[in-house]
Protein backbone atom coordinates (compact mmCIF):
# COMPACT_ATOMS: atom_id res chain seq x y z
CA UNK A 1 0.00 0.00 0.00
CA UNK A 2 2.79 2.35 0.90
CA UNK A 3 4.45 1.59 -2.39
CA UNK A 4 1.44 2.53 -4.38
CA UNK A 5 1.09 5.73 -2.46
CA UNK A 6 4.70 6.77 -3.10
CA UNK A 7 4.29 5.96 -6.72
CA UNK A 8 1.35 8.20 -7.10
CA UNK A 9 2.96 11.00 -5.10
CA UNK A 10 6.20 11.44 -7.00
CA UNK A 11 7.52 10.63 -10.45
CA UNK A 12 9.68 7.44 -10.69
CA UNK A 13 12.94 8.53 -9.11
CA UNK A 14 16.14 8.10 -11.08
CA UNK A 15 18.75 5.85 -9.53
CA UNK A 16 21.06 8.14 -7.55
CA UNK A 17 24.49 7.75 -9.15
CA UNK A 18 26.55 9.71 -6.67
CA UNK A 19 26.84 7.12 -3.84
CA UNK A 20 27.54 4.40 -6.35
CA UNK A 21 30.34 6.36 -7.96
CA UNK A 22 31.72 7.09 -4.50
CA UNK A 23 31.83 3.40 -3.71
CA UNK A 24 33.33 2.50 -7.08
CA UNK A 25 36.11 5.01 -6.54
CA UNK A 26 36.77 3.64 -3.10
CA UNK A 27 37.10 0.16 -4.56
CA UNK A 28 39.28 1.41 -7.37
CA UNK A 29 41.63 3.15 -4.97
CA UNK A 30 41.73 0.12 -2.71
CA UNK A 31 42.69 -2.22 -5.53
CA UNK A 32 45.24 0.15 -7.05
CA UNK A 33 46.94 0.52 -3.69
CA UNK A 34 46.95 -3.17 -2.82
CA UNK A 35 47.82 -4.57 -6.22
CA UNK A 36 51.05 -6.49 -6.44
CA UNK A 37 52.37 -7.49 -9.83
CA UNK A 38 52.53 -11.25 -10.16
CA UNK A 39 55.47 -13.23 -11.47
CA UNK A 40 54.81 -15.18 -14.62
CA UNK A 41 56.09 -18.70 -14.22
CA UNK A 42 57.43 -21.04 -16.84
CA UNK A 43 57.83 -24.76 -16.49
CA UNK A 44 60.74 -26.38 -18.28
CA UNK A 45 60.24 -30.02 -19.07
CA UNK A 46 63.07 -32.50 -18.76
CA UNK A 47 63.43 -36.23 -18.75
CA UNK A 48 65.63 -38.08 -16.37
CA UNK A 49 67.51 -41.32 -16.65
CA UNK A 50 66.33 -44.07 -14.32
CA UNK A 51 68.01 -44.06 -10.96
CA UNK A 52 68.35 -47.83 -10.95
CA UNK A 53 71.73 -49.00 -12.01
CA UNK A 54 70.18 -51.77 -14.11
CA UNK A 55 70.63 -50.02 -17.40
CA UNK A 56 74.16 -50.54 -18.65
CA UNK A 57 76.43 -47.56 -19.01
CA UNK A 58 76.79 -47.81 -22.74
CA UNK A 59 78.96 -45.49 -24.76
CA UNK A 60 77.03 -42.46 -25.95
CA UNK A 61 75.84 -42.80 -29.54
CA UNK A 62 77.68 -40.41 -31.86
CA UNK A 63 74.53 -38.50 -32.91
CA UNK A 64 73.87 -37.33 -29.39
CA UNK A 65 74.47 -33.70 -28.61
CA UNK A 66 76.07 -33.25 -25.24
CA UNK A 67 75.94 -29.93 -23.50
CA UNK A 68 78.06 -29.58 -20.41
CA UNK A 69 77.17 -27.08 -17.75
CA UNK A 70 80.04 -26.04 -15.53
CA UNK A 71 80.08 -23.50 -12.70
CA UNK A 72 81.99 -21.13 -14.96
CA UNK A 73 80.69 -21.84 -18.43
CA UNK A 74 79.24 -24.19 -20.99
CA UNK A 75 80.56 -26.72 -23.47
CA UNK A 76 78.89 -28.43 -26.39
CA UNK A 77 80.37 -31.78 -27.41
CA UNK A 78 83.41 -30.93 -25.30
CA UNK A 79 84.01 -27.58 -27.01
CA UNK A 80 83.79 -24.64 -24.62
CA UNK A 81 81.25 -22.06 -25.75
CA UNK A 82 79.68 -18.90 -24.45
CA UNK A 83 75.95 -18.70 -23.83
CA UNK A 84 75.43 -16.62 -26.97
CA UNK A 85 77.35 -19.05 -29.12
CA UNK A 86 75.44 -21.95 -27.62
CA UNK A 87 72.23 -20.19 -28.54
CA UNK A 88 73.34 -19.85 -32.16
CA UNK A 89 74.42 -23.50 -32.35
CA UNK A 90 71.17 -24.77 -30.86
CA UNK A 91 69.18 -22.67 -33.27
CA UNK A 92 71.07 -24.12 -36.24
CA UNK A 93 70.61 -27.57 -34.79
CA UNK A 94 66.88 -27.02 -34.39
CA UNK A 95 66.57 -26.09 -38.05
CA UNK A 96 67.79 -29.59 -38.92
CA UNK A 97 65.88 -31.60 -36.35
CA UNK A 98 63.95 -30.51 -33.28
CA UNK A 99 63.58 -34.06 -31.98
CA UNK A 100 67.32 -34.45 -31.68
CA UNK A 101 68.24 -35.91 -28.31
CA UNK A 102 70.18 -33.44 -26.21
CA UNK A 103 71.99 -34.61 -23.18
CA UNK A 104 72.59 -31.84 -20.70
CA UNK A 105 75.28 -32.80 -18.28
CA UNK A 106 75.29 -30.51 -15.31
CA UNK A 107 78.15 -30.32 -12.86
CA UNK A 108 77.12 -30.70 -9.23
CA UNK A 109 78.70 -27.44 -8.15
CA UNK A 110 77.21 -25.25 -10.87
CA UNK A 111 74.39 -22.90 -9.90
CA UNK A 112 70.88 -23.95 -10.84
CA UNK A 113 70.54 -20.78 -12.89
CA UNK A 114 73.02 -22.06 -15.49
CA UNK A 115 71.00 -25.19 -16.07
CA UNK A 116 67.85 -23.13 -16.44
CA UNK A 117 69.60 -20.90 -18.97
CA UNK A 118 70.46 -23.90 -21.12
CA UNK A 119 66.96 -25.34 -20.80
CA UNK A 120 65.59 -21.94 -21.73
CA UNK A 121 67.69 -21.80 -24.89
CA UNK A 122 66.48 -25.28 -25.82
CA UNK A 123 62.90 -24.20 -25.24
CA UNK A 124 63.50 -21.17 -27.40
CA UNK A 125 64.83 -23.30 -30.25
CA UNK A 126 61.87 -25.66 -29.72
CA UNK A 127 64.09 -28.62 -28.97
CA UNK A 128 61.97 -31.12 -27.11
CA UNK A 129 64.11 -34.15 -26.43
CA UNK A 130 66.08 -33.03 -23.42
CA UNK A 131 67.72 -35.20 -20.82
CA UNK A 132 69.39 -33.87 -17.74
CA UNK A 133 72.22 -35.84 -16.24
CA UNK A 134 74.23 -34.82 -13.21
CA UNK A 135 77.95 -35.20 -13.14
CA UNK A 136 80.36 -34.78 -10.30
Amino acid sequence: MARKKRKSDMPPAELPMTPMIDVVFQLLIYFIVTIKPVDVFAHLDVSRPQAEKTQPQTAVPPKLIRINVFPDGFAINETPVTLEKLDGLLEKLAQLDTTQTILIMCAATSPHEKLIQVLDLCARSRLTNLSVVSTN
Binding site: K36, D39, V40, F41, H43, L44, D45, S47, L115
Partner: peptide, 14 residues
Protein backbone atom coordinates in the same frame (compact mmCIF):
# COMPACT_ATOMS: atom_id res chain seq x y z
CA UNK B 1 58.15 -40.28 -10.61
CA UNK B 2 59.21 -39.18 -14.06
CA UNK B 3 57.23 -36.04 -14.85
CA UNK B 4 59.71 -33.51 -13.59
CA UNK B 5 59.68 -29.86 -14.50
CA UNK B 6 61.75 -26.90 -13.47
CA UNK B 7 60.01 -23.69 -12.56
CA UNK B 8 61.45 -20.40 -13.69
CA UNK B 9 60.29 -16.85 -14.13
CA UNK B 10 59.09 -16.01 -17.59
CA UNK B 11 58.72 -12.45 -16.48
CA UNK B 12 59.77 -11.19 -13.13
CA UNK B 13 57.48 -8.70 -11.47
CA UNK B 14 60.04 -6.92 -9.36
Amino acid sequence: LWRIKFAAYKEEAR
